[in-house]
C-alpha cells in the first residue's frame, strides 16, 4: 500500500515540469463571463483551441457567469496581469459600467482595466416578428405601436442586455413604446417569440436565420450599417430613416497591466489562430462569421461602439422594474 502510494506521488510530481522559459510555460485560463452555450462561449471555444495550437500550451476555458457578465469581467480586471488570464467578452462589456453610473452604483470594473487583444466576430442584430402577427414592414409596426402604445411586447436576453439595448434604441428612434418582457438569455427570448407569448424580438443572425427559413418568424430590418450577406433582401434601419446601429460582437481581452511583450505574443497567437481553416469553418457553421480586427483597429472599433452604447443608454434612461 505504502509503496504504491510513493509510486503515485512520484508520478504526480513528475508531470508539472518546472521549466522556466519564455511565455507561456503553463496553461492559460480564458474566462468566459457567460454560461456555456451562448454566443460568447461558442466563440471562445474555437478561439481557445486555435490559440492552443499557436502557443503550444493549453488554453482552458472557465465560465464565470453572473450579473449579466459583470462577475467574470470584474474577475478578469482584478486578475494577475501576467498573460495567464485572458477573457472573451461581448458588447455588453461597455454597457455595464454605464448602467452602474446610471443607477449610481459602485462600478464592478472600468473599461480602462482591459487591454483589447482582438475582435473575433461582429454581427448586427435583426428585428423579427412572430409569423402570425400582421406586420410586414417596420412602417406598419411603428404605425400600430403609435396607435396602441405599450401594447406590443418584445422579449430580451435580460435588462440592459444586448437584445434589450437594440430594441430600446429602435423604440427611442421611432418614438414608440413597447412592453418589455425580459428573459434570461437569447434562447429563452426566442422561445417566447415562437410560442407567441411576445410579439417582436431583436437577436443575432445566427439565432434568427434558421427560424426565418422555417417560416416561423419574419424579419423586418437589420441594425447594421450595411445589409447582411446572408439576408441581402433585408433593409437596414438606416435605409428606413432610423439613425441607429447595433452589433453583438465578441472580442478577446487581457488585464490592462499585462506587459507589452506578453500582449504581443497573445495577439500574434490569435492572428495566427484566426487563419486556421478549422477555426474559420467552425465559426461559419455557428452563423457568426469571423470579423477579425487586430488590437489597434479593435480599440478604435470598441471606442466608437462604447460611445454609441453610452449615448443610447442615457437616452433610454432607467427602466422601471424591467
Amino acid at each position: 500500500m505504502i509503496r504504491f502510494a510513493f509510486a503515485a506521488i512520484l508520478a504526480a510530481l513528475a508531470v508539472p515540469a518546472l521549466a522556466q522559459g519564455a511565455f507561456p510555460d503553463r496553461p492559460i485560463a480564458m474566462i468566459v463571463p457567460f454560461p456555456p452555450g451562448g454566443v460568447a462561449d461558442q466563440t471562445a471555444r474555437p478561439v481557445a483551441a486555435a490559440m492552443e495550437k499557436a502557443l503550444k500550451q493549453p488554453v482552458v476555458l472557465a465560465n464565470r457567469q453572473g450579473a449579466g457578465g459583470a462577475v467574470g469581467m470584474a474577475a478578469t480586471a482584478a486578475a494577475r496581469p501576467d498573460g495567464y488570464t485572458i477573457m472573451t467578452a461581448l458588447s455588453s462589456i461597455s454597457v455595464i459600467p454605464e448602467a452602474d453610473k446610471l443607477f449610481e452604483r459602485k462600478p464592478a470594473y472600468t473599461m480602462d482595466q482591459f487591454a483589447p487583444l482582438a475582435l473575433i466576430s461582429s454581427d448586427p442584430t435583426v428585428l423579427v416578428v412572430n409569423a402570425e402577427r400582421p406586420w410586414k414592414s417596420v412602417a406598419e409596426l411603428v404605425a400600430d405601436a403609435k396607435a396602441r402604445p405599450g401594447q406590443i411586447s418584445f422579449s430580451s436576453s435580460g435588462v440592459y442586455g444586448t437584445l434589450h439595448m437594440a430594441t430600446e434604441m429602435f423604440a427611442h428612434a421611432a418614438q414608440v413604446k413597447f412592453k418589455h418582457v425580459p428573459f434570461n438569455g437569447a434562447g429563452p427570448a426566442m422561445t417566447a417569440l415562437l410560442g407567441g407569448h411576445v410579439d417582436i424580438l431583436a437577436s443575432g443572425p445566427g439565432v434568427v436565420l434558421p427560424q426565418i427559413k422555417a417560416g416561423k418568424v419574419r424579419a423586418l430590418a437589420g441594425w447594421g450599417a450595411k445589409r447582411l450577406d446572408v439576408m441581402p433582401e433585408l433593409p437596414t434601419f438606416k435605409e428606413l430613416g432610423f439613425d441607429i446601429e447595433f452589433y453583438i460582437w465578441a472580442g478577446v481581452f487581457a488585464p490592462a497591466a499585462t506587459p507589452a511583450p506578453i500582449l504581443e505574443t497573445l495577439r500574434r497567437a490569435i492572428a495566427q489562430g484566426v487563419k486556421d481553416p478549422d477555426f474559420v469553418a467552425a465559426m461559419e457553421k455557428a452563423g457568426t462569421p469571423v470579423a477579425y480586427l487586430d488590437a489597434p483597429e479593435f480599440k478604435k472599433f470598441w471606442d466608437t461602439d462604447a460611445a454609441r452604447l453610452a449615448k443610447a443608454l442615457r437616452a433610454i434612461g432607467k427602466v422601471e422594474g424591467g
Partner: peptide, 29 residues
C-alpha cells in the same frame, strides 16, 4: 501517505487529465 496520495492523485486526475482549473500556490505548486 493517504493525505499525499489523495491530494496529489486527485490533482493529477482532475487538473492534468480533465483540465479542471485548480489553483496553484507558491512556486506554481
Amino acid at each position: 501517505a493517504w493525505s499525499a496520495l489523495l491530494s496529489l492523485g486527485s490533482f493529477h486526475a482532475f487538473s492534468v487529465w480533465l483540465r479542471v482549473p485548480l489553483p496553484r500556490g507558491p512556486f506554481g505548486f
